[in-house]
Amino acid sequence: MQKGYVRKPLLAIFSILLLLWIFIPVYWIIKTSFAPEVEVWSMGIPKNPTLQNFKDIFVVPRGAMAEVAGTYLSISPTIVTPLINTLFVAGIAVGLTMLVSTIAAYNLSRFSYKGKNLISCYILFAYVFPPFILMVPMTIILSNVGMFDKLTGLAVVHLAYTVPFATFMLRGYFLGIPRELEEVAMVDGCSRLQALLKIVLPLAAPGLAAVAIFSFVLSWGDVIFSTVLLNTTENYTLPIHIGFFLWGGEIVDPGRLAATAILAGMMPAVLYLGIQKFVRMGLVAGAVKG
């Protein structure tokens, strides 16, 4: 009885602290995105909330960025091009990742052969490898094969993030599907590939969707390779586009910056929250025992 008196207020206090910790930065950007220009820096909820900022980022702006820099800058002024570019890159990266990782994960979950451990180690190594080391050599290699400043080139480089992660998560998922189902199908005359395509993949559909979403988010959030591999305005992705809202450490046009950030951050965040169950599973498969 006495225990409950201490426990409940403590739980409440820690819960509130947790919520404040998570939400203070998030609240600020949400309220700014709905604020009219005069209210962008006031603390409270905007008195005259408006959707103007969200409309503004899609049409050519008044040139606020050009004013600050002194001259007109040939940067992409609306969100449209970077948004399409980012979607395009993430789309290709996800497509290729799924193609490559599904069969690799199937191999790791079903076959046993000499050298399999070595391959697992190799993929794990790729998973933990810090990508900044690839920054310099990747730039030179892509220049030499004519892929520098190409969105497809960027998408291929993103496989360095996505393939190891997707392979490990899918392997965990495939291990959870009983192999008897395929064995029966193979006795009935299915080939290995048919068994994979017709039996395992439909059963693994939720897992495949989750892995596709993770890969999408990884590609969407990439800053390293977009920064060094893209060079022309038409090819800029969202992280680079957003960088132009900061000039000399000063935020230019906070309302539109907040709206851009919400649009750019919401898609991955919503997708992520939608597959929460798999976030845990992926972590368990990836970080605890696979």
Binding site: S15, P25, W28, I29, V217, W220, L238, L257, P268, V279
Partner: peptide
């Protein structure tokens, strides 16, 4: 609370930076 606790992790790092530009 469990659901909300993964929100910061669900936000791409570059957006987290934008949040803190405002902070």
């Amino acid at each position: 609370l469990r659901g909300l606790s993964i929100l910061p992790w669900a936000i791409p790092p570059f957006i987290a930076c934008v949040l803190f530009w405002f902070v």
